[in-house]
Design a protein around this nucleic acid. Sequence first.
DNA 1: AAATGTCACAACCGCCGCCAA
DNA 2: GTTGGCGGCGGTTGTGACATT
Length: 335
Amino acid sequence: MGRAPCCEKNGLKKGPWTPEEDQKLIDYIQKHGHGSWRTLPKNAGLERCGKSCRLRWTNYLRPDIKRGKFSFEEEETIIQLHSILGNKWSAIAARLPGRTDNEIKNYWNTHIRKRLLRMGIDPVTHSPRLDLLDLSSLLNSPLYNPSQLNVSRLLGIQHLINPKLLNLATNLLSSQENNQLCNSQVQTQFPSFIPNSPLLNETQLLHANVDQFPSNPASFNCHDSQASVWQESGAIPSNFTDNQIPLSNYGYNSSADQSMVDPLSENSNLQSTNDSSNQNFSFASVLSTPSSSPTPLNSSPTYINSSTEDEMDRYCSKMLKYLDLPDLLDVSEFM
DNA sequence: AAATGTCACAACCGCCGCCAA
DNA sequence: GTTGGCGGCGGTTGTGACATT
């Protein structure tokens, strides 16, 4: 015997809210608080169910809601939190002041999820799309030994393979000699793919103080990063060096090894130097268009708002392009 | 200019967990 | 221990705005 839907009663209005209804709801809650949502609509003179009122208030009318596009920092945070919490939108929203779970959920489904898919990353697992190329089994197989590499085995699954991932795989297989480069790349690009990568568990994350998170991605350096905070809290082993910290940023994290950037790119503003400025790499610095950030929500000029989504894509493409290492092991000719 | 397709987001639906009776 | 009310959550849908043909 299931419970009757709360909007089952006839006469209750559904659909978009009118400004008049909004005003009634705002006026009532400002005077009396929401109290019992069940009784609120009647007391406020609204022909809505309590659940509808609650949703309207929490997702739209609440005064502390931050409207407007998501900043790059917010997007980065969402991705990292999602990699740990999954689709627990309310938990993610709790760490993004002014954002609602519904808003984050929508933004994830319409923006972030698509971008990750385009990058060949599974938005559920935050790992490379193993449905396209099962890298883990590849690495655990004799194929992992480059001397025994049997490229022909790849041919049978070529139609399933994302070319970018295949390049990554070939890079992995061929670069044991260049272990440092390879490990650094993969750990930065696909952190959750690395075996024994010390990902945070939910409990650890939930106990982290959101205030400790850096407010400005431009200053997201290795000693000021949340990873550093986590490291201090014991969430990350202390022997994890800065450039090995497993941040799930997929190529545009601000602490990414600058050597990842295509050195041939004429648009790249990054410098492949080892000076201390590397520690302060800003995503903004790789954007060819200045961020005007018209949104009043973030006054910091270093924030990137979502109007630069295409630029993020281009940047991600650069990252993936870098994985197209030429002829280390070019299996494409077999395809 | 009209038709069609795509995208973004507000709102709804159904389920779940908590809690009081 | 059981039941039902309630708030909250996540998945899904409906629709208006915008882009493309």
